[in-house]
Amino acid sequence: MTISTPVELIVAAPGRKSRGLAQAIARRIGIAVIVIWGAITASFLALKSMGGDPVQSIAGGVVQVTPELREQIIAKYGLDDSFFQQYLSYLGGVLQGDLGTSYALRRPVVEAIAEQLPNTMTLLITATVFAVAVAFIVSLTTAHRGKRVRSTFQALESIGVAVPAFWLGIMLITIFSFGLRMFPSTGANGVAALVLPSIALGLPVAATLSQVMRDTLEKTLDEPFIVTVRARGAGEFVVRVRHALRHSLVSVITLVGWLSGTLIGGAVVVEQVFSRPGIGRMIFSAVLNKDMPVVLGIVIVAAVFYVIVNTVIDLLYPIIDPRLR
């Protein structure tokens, strides 16, 4: 689910400046609603077509359901309604902020997600910050450097992209938790517990980012204006950080927005490996248990997250590149 091509939207904006900000905002909200509605509908269809008896899932899987319990469950969850009725009543609930009751956890989905969301958000944010920081440092220091330096880092980046988060997580735990005893291997207590999961989640993203960033940096460094800057006597640091970096930022943050979706998927694995509470682990067990309200709820949260990240990025474009104002 891509929400739009952000660059296009903003690039088109200057021509319609007079039509005002209000319209741009309305347009953005409209797109957000369509994205979220699409995500709900697609997930609803997918989950309903998976087969299996929902009463059995609600009762807890491999358990005997007495006729009385069956009736009670059907009545409570409205399972005898038609498919379309169930869909509409779910959408109606969403509009009122009610995501239903979890089959397995026996509590409101909103409450269950709210409890775990901060953990996952903290992880996603630190992983992103880590990834961006690593990408900045690596790309700034290696762009247009000697062939050996570049190819070494390119190889490392390829490995970084290819390494499964699961394996990376286990390796990090083995070395830094069980070996060096620097960081805890499990849980979400304190900053120390955030270090390894953020690296496991952020490293593949950092590798992707720094590849792209170095490419654009190198292209920028070949631009004629860089020659002008150098001619004015600017040092290498100033050339790279003040002038070239700014040009490559647009493509980098576009990529960050796109990768934010990947990060949510990665959180499922990383939370599992590091025994970290969060919505990633929650959706994992919800899918196994066919806990439909929880799966749908987390899909909505993920869609909202994606929309927010990309909106923020769209707002950043004109700040980074004044030509887009």
Partner: peptide, 18 residues
């Protein structure tokens, strides 16, 4: 009682004394 779903991590937590 903590929950550590990954077998290898659970084993490591025991042998490392966590």
């Amino acid at each position: 009682m903590t929950i550590v779903p990954e077998d290898s991590v659970r084993l490591g937590s025991l042998s490392s004394g966590e």
